[in-house]
Simulated assay, not measured.
Amino acid sequence: MRAAVIGAGIGGLCTAVGLQRAGAEVTIYERAAELKPVGSGLSIFANGLTALESLGLGDAFRAITSTQAGRLRGGQRRPDGGWLATIPSNAVTELRIVHRAELHRILLEALEPGTLRLGVEVLEVSPDGAELRTADGSERFDLVVAADGIRSRVRSSWPGDPGIHYSGYSTWRGVTEQPVDLGGEAGETWGHGERFGLAPLADGRIYWFAVATMPAGSTIDDEYAEVVRRFGSWHHPIPELIRGTAPETVFRLDINDLAGPAPTFRRGRCVLLGDAAHAMTPDLGQGGGQAMEDAATLVALLGRISAEPTPSPGDLDTALAEYDRLRRSRTQPIARRARTVGAVAHTRGRLGVTARNALMRLTPASATARQLAAIQSWRPPAAV
């Protein structure tokens, strides 16, 4: 089977590796002339690890991560350090925090030489999903995987594209230059329309993010100074983490998700994957994990079809239809829940924050554990 993957992000690379190992001939089209992974961390829970295992990437991933984050006391705190809610210790035992650059490295190393074509932008995919066009011409494939991100050109050309929705908040991200002792505690701190989260990387450095409600496209002259102004007086070790990060490495991104559920993840022989299909806010830490699940699901459903020089159209159609059904039913409720969590976290006003904090303190830890278990207990399907 000849397969094209549009986009060399996490989901696209995982898909390409899995399809190649299943016997497919794969080409990745990436419009960037050079890959420059964002310098930040990524949370991968048990379901993401299961997906990587299914793709044959589990050992390589474990080699660059640890379960340290899952052993720390986590949950939500107030800016003065008082705990609002804690996550049960056995609910996130497989949680791993990975630097995006390291994850990209192991995925690229797992590809066969010549798979990746940099600086090539896909301009269009035919309505039957089997032909893509670039500036150099057109080419046909048995399968086209559109993993071209939240602003997917492929998705935007389909009927019913929901478009993009701004969450109302923007996020700074940074990684400390040196290891920092967290004293056995991690998680997030929730204030009035502001949040700060932190988690350890395998080498002891700390990945952190700072979130604030603001208009979309806000311009800030000095991003690092703004982080200091907003969060520099919050509880230990937040000020130390900010001071321990090189100012020039701190960057900010507006947080967007899809404005609504995409009506389909499949059009002919083309499927949407990752953020192109179900971009969600990072409030459940599931963006990367769901892209990994997408890749593992697609590879599993195709099964032996991947190794066939000319796959049966009927078999391919059945597998892609099942991918569409399974992944929409799995990802879209998670995306809705993530948006809800973000809205609650960014409650503003004294009365609203007081009510939110009281609700968090009253929520049983067992309920939190059940919700986390429901997300993490995923398994790849059998081949169609």
Rank of each mutant, 00 (worst) to 15 (best):
L273K: 00
G274S: 11
G274R: 07
D275N: 15
D275F: 12
D275M: 10
A276R: 05
A276G: 15
A277D: 07
A277P: 14
H278Y: 11
H278L: 04
A279I: 05
A279Y: 08
A279P: 11
A279S: 14
M280P: 13
T281H: 11
T281V: 08
P282H: 09
P282T: 05
P282Q: 03
D283I: 04
D283W: 06
D283L: 11
D283K: 06
L284R: 08
L284M: 14
G285H: 02
G285K: 00
Q286Y: 13
Q286H: 12
G287P: 13
G287Y: 10
G287H: 03
G288L: 01
G289L: 10
G289K: 12
Q290P: 11
A291K: 12
A291F: 12
A291E: 09
M292Y: 10
E293G: 02
E293Q: 04
D294V: 02
D294L: 01
D294I: 07
D294M: 03
A295G: 07
A295C: 06
A296I: 02
A296Y: 00
A296C: 01
A296D: 02
L298D: 01
L298W: 02
L298Q: 08
V299Q: 11
A300I: 02
L301E: 08
L301F: 10
L301S: 12
L301P: 09
L302R: 03
L302C: 04
L302P: 03
L302T: 06
L302M: 11
G303L: 02
R304D: 15
R304L: 13
I305H: 15
I305M: 14
S306G: 12
S306F: 14
S306W: 09
A307G: 15
E308N: 13
E308L: 09
E308H: 13
P309W: 03
T310V: 12
T310P: 00
T310R: 13
T310M: 08
P311V: 00
P311G: 04
S312G: 03
P313Q: 02
G314K: 01
G314C: 04
D315N: 05
D315F: 03
L316F: 01
L316M: 14
L316P: 07
L316S: 07
D317K: 00
D317V: 03
T318Y: 00
